[in-house]
Design a binder for these strands. Structure first.
Lengths: 194, 194
DNA sequence: CGCCTATCTTGTCGGTGACAAGTTGTTGGT
DNA sequence: ACCAACAACTTGTCACCGACAAGATAGGCG
């Protein structure tokens, strides 16, 4: 059992995150219960509480992991010529959100004020945002992050992908388009903007 | 007491909606509890259950009322010349969302599958959507609602306002802009699109 | 008067998050 | 080798929640 680290009753923290991810994907964040996770993993009802700052801490960790994946996806989308960065990154963004709708909703719904993996969450979140900025402007502007001010360019780009994705995830477009049609429309929007 | 209708212990349904609206505005939908509402109104803990199909039913009613207000706001924004419909309606949309952020989030987060005031919710929701269509195209296309298909025009318009608003409401832009700056940016986006 | 129905109350169930206190296993110092 | 300190986990409990069942109460109508 060298592979499973310290072992007292297994590597609980990792197991909790994996189990919670499964519940998240199939039933949404509201369905995640500390006691239920404990039950699924065969530990006592209070065990999960020792690995996160309460339920909110667990959700923060899930959100942070999501931002990490999103950032990696966006960064990977920029290995082509800069002229295609915006379109490719937008496509990657939407593809990520549609592949993990519940995770995406959690990432943008949960308050960042969580505290558990606060710095990790903030870091991965801003990493994703920097990728977005780079894609929109074909490179990173050389300014002090401290006095960064939101501009119309990135707001429009982010709003259109975030808005489309949220409308789809929340079922507002369900009766008006299939997923394939929705993706085609998003591609159309992205090439118009770019 | 003629004004308060039937009276057994007051017009509970209306009182519940008003109290729940207050809690919603100041603490969000998650803070709405049937038992807490009952406590606030001085009735027994089970009383609210007789007026809505459970907690979800109450939330649906709140969402439906929100869509009613939104639809009215959007319709009112189109009393000017058709050329200004899109910009004015967009502005009205964003203004509504920023004035009632928790309500707005509830409207687009809660599943429409609620059952309680399902037909009312669906009706007010599509009323708001029709206003949006009218604003985008300067009038309503003459098609059968049954075979309506989502098109790029309305998707882009809706996405950009919904996305911007959700990003703001969920605090993603907090550190990058003040509310006034955000509103100015939204106006800029709206006039570019229109 | 007596029934009927809508409204509200009381009681209870299983479930949940948070916390306190105790137990067990692991690790590291001597 | 031993023991202390620490981390991981268990047990127990609290207040809260939503949902339901069954009973009480009031108003309307015959």
């Amino acid at each position: 059992m060298l592979t499973t680290d310290t072992y007292h009753h297994g590597n609980l923290r990792r197991a909790l995150l994996e189990e919670a991810s499964a519940v998240l994907e199939e039933a949404g964040a509201d369905a995640i219960s500390m006691r239920d996770l404990a039950r699924r993993l065969g530990v006592s009802h209070a065990a999960p509480g020792h690995h996160f700052e309460g339920r909110q801490g667990l959700l923060s960790a899930l959100a942070a992991a999501g931002f990490e994946n999103l950032a990696a996806s966006l960064e990977a989308a920029m290995d082509g010529p800069p002229g295609e960065w915006q379109t490719n990154t937008g496509r990657a963004y939407v593809r990520f959100a549609l592949a993990h709708p519940q995770r995406y909703r959690l990432m943008f719904t949960t308050g960042i004020t969580s505290g558990d993996c606060e710095e990790h969450l903030a870091h991965q979140s801003s990493r994703a945002y920097l990728a977005l900025l780079k894609a929109v402007y074909g490179g990173l502007p050389d300014i002090d992050p401290a006095d960064y001010r939101l501009a119309a360019g990135e707001l429009r780009a982010w709003s259109v992908v975030h808005g489309a994705v949220m409308l789809w995830i929340d079922g507002q477009l369900e009766t008006a388009a299939t997923e394939a049609q929705f993706l085609a429309l998003v591609d159309e929007m992205l090439s118009e903007i770019g």
